[in-house]
């Protein structure tokens, strides 16, 4: 019962955050709405007893990434978006396709909502995640470092001043 109530609270806040992200004209407000969305997702994770995931969600996304994001927005002094909501036939088509996609998803997930995964409650906790990361998911865990290196090089290539020699 409590879980259902919590779910609805977090879900509504999360969706409100997502809508705020899209419809705010100011980039800073959009970023703040995204943080709201991240927090409510963390709440959802908590209610599914995935404490570790919830903590990571807040630390990494809401903490590190979004702070960086806000810094960038403020440093670049991004102006409010003008005329984003003006109608354009292509946007109309995109809107219709998006609507069809949402309808499709709702239709499909309608039957799926009741089923639950057979996972133990330790599934999302630090110990279980750590054990899985160091055994079964060791290889992907290590390979993610390659993505990070590539992204690092990319950032340097794009950002540095004198890249030709």
């Amino acid at each position: 019962m409590l879980q259902t109530i919590l779910f609805w609270i977090f879900a509504i806040i999360g969706i409100a955050g997502a809508i705020g992200l899209i419809f705010n004209k100011s980039a800073v407000y959009s970023a703040l709405s995204l943080i709201l969305n991240f927090f409510s997702l963390a709440g959802l994770y908590l209610s599914l007893s995935a404490e570790f995931l919830a903590a990571i969600q807040i630390l990494v996304y809401a903490g590190a990434i979004m702070v960086l994001f806000l810094f960038v927005i403020m440093l670049l002094n991004v102006q409010d978006e003008q005329g984003v909501l003006k109608f354009d036939p292509r946007q109309g088509i995109a809107f219709l396709i998006g609507l069809a996609f949402i309808g499709e998803m709702l239709f499909v997930f309608k039957d799926f909502a009741g089923t639950s995964l057979s996972g133990s409650f330790a599934f999302g906790q630090v110990e279980a995640v750590g054990r899985e990361l160091m055994t079964r998911y060791l290889f992907p865990f290590e390979m993610i470092s390659v993505i990070l290196i590539a992204a690092l090089i990319g950032a340097i290539v794009v950002a540095r001043k004198h890249s030709y020699h």
């Binding site: 390979m143 993505i147 590539a150 990319g154």
Partner: peptide, 28 residues
């Protein structure tokens, strides 16, 4: 490396990681 990971993966997680590694380099 990413391409090979993606092609020879036996787990969708590796497929995805390989794809991202490859794409990250191609974006650059």
């Amino acid at each position: 490396l990413g391409m090979i990971l993606m092609a020879n993966a036996n787990d969708l997680i590796i497929t995805f990681i390989g794809l991202e590694t490859m794409s990250m380099c191609l974006y650059i």
